[in-house]
Design a binder for these strands. Structure first.
Lengths: 198, 198
DNA sequence: CGCCGAGTTGAACTGAATCAAGAAACGTGG
DNA sequence: CCACGTTTCTTGATTCAGTTCAACTCGGCG
């Protein structure tokens, strides 16, 4: 996977449409720098964009009734992140999207993107692929949470987000895994002992 | 929500296409009775159909490394169920789909359905809606598992599947919630005590 | 140098799992 | 329609994974 790829290049590699047209489409969308800590979506707002991360790292998370944060997804370079429930059904979002590093993000107008399918069927196919990828991830996540222990989930996290592991505080990893930072610390200790024991 | 609706009627109500064409499309797909206990998909197989439940009840579940079952979804009347990861990416499924009651199920050929979009754009839109609904459910599920206690998840289950609650053994509800049947029994006891106390 | 946030460690606690036993409900065949 | 065996549900005792709270370490960084 390439780092720091511009969206146009990413799409040219994944969508069978004339590169010039892709560049034209991408140019019509706003690309913005987002500073660490800034929000792209806040609870209660309607999500009007798909965000593509060209540089940096975002997190997609909720805050529960006790004030605890739960990270549903990380979005490093070349990832999309969007609250599709909010964007598609026009409902206020229950989630936040925030930059964890100084980032460069393309804000794809959801309306515009969905209309693109009419002119470019290949775009519909690509969007479809994104949706199926999204479903794949979410389903795996549900199955993980139902089937695996904290330690097993941590190992799978490393597989999925090897780079993210090194870029965020462990508190955030714990929040993604659904455990406390203290528990993650102990899980890591156990794993490293087990590893050195063999 | 209507019970025992045939797929054609369901689609006529949800897709703006000539009813005759819809009937013709549905008639081209196989509808089959499925006895309680029978499987529509087994681990390792590639999922080649979307299943629409006209009558009865299905479950979509996995079995973990310790042999425990984890139900990802129930599908009562008018629900679709499909392993989209397997169907779309052509990968062997990690899941099972099984009838929990004697059921009547329409087996929609995934290939055929996706090609329908070419002739009937309204079908593409409908498929899109199904995908977004799927994402909505899965995302809620992840957020629930991360944010709520067993008791809270049980209450939300009742909201989502009021009828299923009465049709399956509590063991299955527990498996959906990610707890043991014993724990569910205690959760229910606590809730009923709390309820009668006020 | 001293502060500060992140990570670790410890001890007590808690929600849920496990194991085991008994009670209730269920459906199947006589 | 009853009797039987099986499955499901409940309850209790114990164990365990993970939480909570608190203290301490460590590595930057002003």
């Amino acid at each position: 996977m390439l780092n720091n790829l511009r969206l146009a290049d990413y799409l040219i590699a994944h969508v069978p449409i004339d590169p010039d047209i892709i560049r034209q489409i991408v140019d019509s969308q706003k690309t913005a720098p987002v500073s660490k800590g800034e929000y792209l979506l806040m609870q209660g707002e309607i999500c009007r964009h798909s965000f593509f991360v060209e540089k940096g790292l975002l997190r997609y998370y909720s805050i529960d009734s006790k004030g605890k944060e739960h990270i549903l997804q990380f979005a490093p370079e070349n990832w999309f992140v969007v609250d599709r429930e909010s964007a598609y059904f026009g409902k206020p979002s229950q989630y936040f999207i925030q930059a964890l590093e100084d980032s460069t993000v393309v804000m794809l107008d959801e309306q515009f993107i969905s209309e693109l399918g009419a002119s470019y069927p290949a775009f519909t196919a690509f969007n479809n692929k994104l949706l199926h990828n999204h479903i794949r991830h979410l389903q795996n996540r549900v199955n993980q949470l139902l089937s695996f222990t904290a330690g097993e989930r941590y190992l799978q996290f490393i597989e999925l987000y090897p780079d993210v592991l090194l870029r965020v505080p462990q508190t955030m990893v714990a929040s993604y895994l659904g455990i406390t930072p203290e528990s993650l610390s102990r899980v890591r200790k156990e794993l490293s002992q087990k590893h050195s024991a063999q």
